[in-house]
Design a protein around this nucleic acid. Structure first.
Lengths: 334, 334
DNA sequence: TTGAAAGCGCTACCAT
DNA sequence: ATGGTAGCGCTTTCAA
């Protein structure tokens, strides 16, 4: 265990026989003397010098770090975002700091207040809910913030959103076109933003397809596998005439697939099924699950790009980007 | 957009009418004068002071940050680790920096060399392969490192490992007990640590069950769904007598399930299937997939705990923890 | 072009 | 107990 302290710019200067200013300049490309650069580089290699980013940050007032704060990295949608955010930021030399808030609103606010005043140059936030206090905090962050999710129109913050209402509608229209007439919907809680939007989209889809609404075909549960399974089992037992089910996310839809199998119904022969989010689950289920992609990966990438623009000093008015949903049709609704 | 500079400790001192030393002491609990603490806190609130972690880091020589470097956060096993690492570190006040290396060995080394000399107090590394250069780099990192995965015994670095060899063996023994006689194995690349270990475990399992080895029943591909599907299709077309398939991870096993369905073979009636990693996929597949858990969540937690001990100054000899695998039997092999 | 020196905001030592 | 002050390692003026 070598316990030598890391070499500083002073060692490099000493070995190269120049001043620390010259070392700094040579390293940052602020010199035109090729010989100087060569000498400094040689000294750097010799002593194994790595600049202290901390000292650099203190001086330059930026850290090269960006944080992504979301509820739980375990959620497939956030995961997709991270997978795109990281390389996008990295290409520009930023490191990614991860912040799972664990559905804790206070913590989300804490992140906004302190984290944004500290150790990061920017922040991508994916809030579960947006309260007045969020808005307040967003208005006075010390660094650029991009919010992924719904945000009131008057908040001057870059914002990337999905359109899950249109997404649900797409799914319903697709099912109707495929010949379905009694389309059930298993939703998450109606008091969540996505739950509400997807329900609205479902109803619009029915209207667009000229199908009647029937409350008996709708269930509000949780965004979970077991919830979908249970709801589908009940729904299809009471209403055997249901010929299609839309699940408000892929987990619910997977639960529906299981329920149908248990009930001996063929998918898509007897009942067509569509999910939402288009997670990796969808492609590997049996039968492969049609699903509405809400563009998580794109939202992540776009959020990162917006933030990078701000970090480069762009101070144009806040932008609002909506990523359009797209339906991937697989066997479950073909 | 308020463009005021963040207040520093000097503003607080001025408002509180004390010296900056007193502010620092009050804030860090190094004073016993309750009145002083109160005055300082009041001033802190008044000016909205948040200490600069950058300046603190420069002074104290630690950053409060820990990095987790792995191949791709999209992998379910790594994800499980992150989900446990983050809260564990966070409880002790450390932030988590994420570093997907994208299967790039050079990049992995780069992380070790520069990242460990910089902006983090410690590092959790989950290398895909361990080369001599890794070992070399590990020997001279500037901060404590914990490696999740297999590491040569003489490398003095804390190490948390799964026992995927025993895991694969467990799976084979279980299949044999269930009556399987011709157990195929679809592995990832043999030159990866898990690929190698699982293959060894497979062979030991066969030996333990008194079954003959048959190279024709083994395929080395990728740890992916499509790879598993394709390999299974070929394998079962050429060798219809195969009565069980072990997939080296759940994705492969899911691919196997699909291939079998396409070939019209019943699972588990004709062919039993077992996967590895016990990801969420397993429980929601059809039929639900038996899978060997390698304790990803536990490994993540333990790695974080080991690292925290080092960060607290513990300099006991490097520890080696092995998390035992466990088999969850579901319908696919019942 | 180069070097000296002034900080960036903080902690901790040393006087008082 | 409190305040002054010397750095932490760097970048960037400013003179030479």
């Amino acid at each position: 265990m070598t316990m030598r302290r890391r070499p500083t710019i002073h060692e490099v200067a000493r070995v190269a026989g120049v001043s620390i200013s010259s070392v700094s300049r040579a390293l940052n490309g602020n010199t035109s003397n090729a010989d100087m650069v060569a000498r400094v580089n040689a000294a750097v290699r010799e002593v194994g010098y790595v600049p202290s980013v901390v000292a650099q940050s203190l001086k330059t007032r930026h850290t090269g770090q960006v944080a992504f704060a979301m509820e739980d990295i375990g959620n497939a949608a956030y995961l997709e975002m991270v997978r795109r955010i990281q390389p996008t930021l990295r290409e520009e030399g930023y490191r990614l700091l991860l912040h799972s808030t664990g559905a804790d609103v206070e913590d989300e606010l804490g992140v906004l207040a302190s984290l944004s005043q500290n150790y990061v140059d920017g922040l991508i936030l994916c809030p579960l809910r947006v309260t007045d206090r969020h808005v307040e905090a967003l208005r006075q962050t010390a660094v650029p913030v991009v919010v992924i999710g719904l945000l009131p129109d008057d908040v001057p913050v870059d914002n990337v959103r999905a359109d899950s209402r249109v997404g649900a509608r797409l799914a319903v229209e697709h099912l109707a076109e495929a010949g379905a007439r009694r389309i059930a919907f298993i939703d998450g809680p109606l008091d969540t933003v996505p739950g509400r939007a997807r329900y609205d989209g479902y109803r619009r889809g029915l209207a667009a397809a000229g199908l009647p609404e029937d409350d008996a075909l709708v269930r509000f549960t949780d965004f979970q596998f077991d919830a979908g399974r249970k709801a589908a089992r009940e729904l299809l037992t009471v209403h055997p005439g249901i010929d299609a089910v839309l699940g408000a996310n892929d987990l619910i839809a997977m639960g529906v697939l299981h329920a149908l199998r248990e009930l001996g119904r063929d998918v898509p022969g007897d009942v067509r099924v569509v999910g939402m989010d288009d997670t990796p689950l969808a492609a590997t289920s049996f039968p492969p699950l049609s699903s509405v992609s809400l563009g998580s990966a794109d939202r992540g990438r776009i959020a990162a790009e917006l933030l990078l623009r701000r970090l480069e000093g762009d101070d144009a008015p806040a932008e609002r980007v909506t990523v359009p949903p797209s339906l991937t049709v697989r066997e479950s609704s073909r």
